[in-house]
């Protein structure tokens, strides 16, 4: 069992923790943080397993993918935060409205 795989398992741990919080926590800011942590977990799986190259430098393709992913994540986070602000402004609640209450 190599360190690389252990880091990947840590990434899975982050993914699972984030998913738990995304489902369980009600405050939207907490949900946005949870999604970011889940994303970091996936990036960690991608990058850690790229270091399984035998004696050579690590595989650069997942590194490029993760950089792409980080930029996408900040874009999504910015949009989510503005939406959150607008939701609080219009409803006064920092959480999702109950879908059944019309």
């Amino acid at each position: 069992m190599s360190v690389a795989v252990l880091y990947a398992v840590t990434g899975l741990g982050l993914f699972s923790l984030g998913l738990y919080a995304l489902i369980v926590r009600a405050h939207l800011l907490r949900k946005i943080l949870a999604l970011n942590i889940m994303g970091s977990g996936v990036f960690l799986v991608l990058t850690a397993l790229a270091r399984r190259a035998p004696d050579g430098p690590p595989d650069p393709v997942p590194h490029a993918m993760v950089i792409t992913g980080i930029v996408v994540a900040v874009a999504a986070t910015a949009l989510a935060l503005v939406l959150l602000r607008r939701v609080v402004e219009t409803t006064g609640q920092p959480r999702l409205p109950d879908p059944d209450s019309e």
């Binding site: 949900k31 999604l35 949009l79």
Partner: peptide, 23 residues
């Protein structure tokens, strides 16, 4: 308010779906 709440939920679901896919 309805559109913003709907969009917020849509965004969270959409991002979650993307992350599961990316894993």
């Amino acid at each position: 308010a309805a559109a913003l709440g709907g969009a917020m939920r849509y965004l969270l679901v959409s991002l979650l779906g993307s992350l599961l896919y990316l894993l």
